[in-house]
Amino acid sequence: MDVHIRHLRYFVAVAEELSFTVAARRLFVSQPALSKQIRQFESSFRATLFERSARAVSLTEAGQALLPNARRVIAQWEDAQRAVANAVDAQYRTLIVGFQAKIGRGLIPHVTATMGAELPQWRLLFRQIGWSDPSVGLAGGEVDVALAWLPVPAHGGFSWKVVATEHRLVALPSTHHLAPRADLTFADLAADPFIALPAQAGPPRDFWLATARRGTQPAVAAEAATAEEALDAIAAGTGIALLPAGHADLARRDDIILRPVRDLPPAELAVLWRSGDDRPAVHTFTAACHHHLRTATDA
Rank of each mutant, 00 (worst) to 15 (best):
A117P: 07
G140K: 14
S35F: 03
Q37I: 13
F186K: 08
P218F: 11
E118L: 15
T112G: 12
A227C: 09
V111Q: 07
H283M: 07
P153N: 12
M115F: 01
R105Y: 00
F285M: 02
P204N: 12
H292L: 00
H176G: 10
D254S: 06
V29T: 13
V12W: 11
D188M: 06
G246V: 04
G104F: 14
H177E: 12
Q81H: 10
A164I: 01
G106W: 07
L95V: 06
R262F: 00
P180T: 08
I240W: 00
A164L: 14
I38H: 02
L264F: 15
Q81M: 06
A267S: 13
E51W: 13
R279H: 14
S43T: 11
T48D: 01
T60V: 14
R262G: 00
G137Y: 11
L49N: 03
H291L: 14
L34M: 12
R52F: 05
G141L: 09
G202P: 05
I240K: 06
N86R: 14
F45R: 15
D79G: 04
F50Q: 10
G104E: 12
H290V: 00
F207Q: 14
R93N: 09
F50M: 03
T226E: 05
G63P: 03
H4L: 13
L59A: 04
T185G: 15
D79V: 09
D133C: 13
D188Y: 05
A270T: 04
W122S: 03
L34W: 08
R26V: 10
T297R: 04
L95R: 03
Q200S: 14
T284M: 12
G156S: 09
F45C: 13
G239Y: 10
G104Y: 10
P151C: 11
T286N: 07
I103N: 03
A179N: 13
R214F: 03
F194V: 05
A56K: 11
P68N: 14
T286V: 07
S58C: 04
G116P: 15
I234Q: 01
A171R: 06
A90K: 11
P109Q: 02
T284A: 14
G239R: 00
L231Q: 09
L125W: 12
A224H: 03
E142N: 14
L189C: 09
W149T: 09
P173L: 09
A287S: 14
A70P: 05
H4E: 08
D2A: 15
R71L: 00
L243Q: 08
E42M: 13
W131K: 02
